[in-house]
Amino acid sequence: MNNPLFILQTLDRHLDHPVELTLYGRAALALGFPAHEPRHETTQDVDAIIPLAQLDPLRADEQFWDARDATNAELAERGLYLTHLFTEADVFLLPDWLDRRERKRRADRMNRMVRMNKQSAWPQKIL
């Protein structure tokens, strides 16, 4: 079981609109880098960085927070969760980190990987 993928698939199911999340830490390694180590898939949570420009819209996005709460409630028995969302001001980043994010290429690669592993699809509403 790839825990980060399972967490994001659960969140994706509860979301009713697209949400942009920038993953980092072990979940990002497990999902964005096919050569990751097996232990990266066993992380209990998914960490994400919120650009300051997106902070207020995200705070006001009640459906996102409801979906997040529903996700955490659903994952409680497995001990998984998604709560560690940091603003860009609270983590060490390069000045041009926004431009250095991997998006489509990683997602495409991940889609190929999950198809190969016969797992369910990459979340569609999480950008």
Partner: peptide, 14 residues
């Protein structure tokens, strides 16, 4: 330490 964007605080305030 750093503080995360707490969904708990957002939900309680709401």
């Amino acid at each position: 330490d750093t503080a995360h964007v707490s969904g708990l605080a957002i939900r309680l305030a709401r």
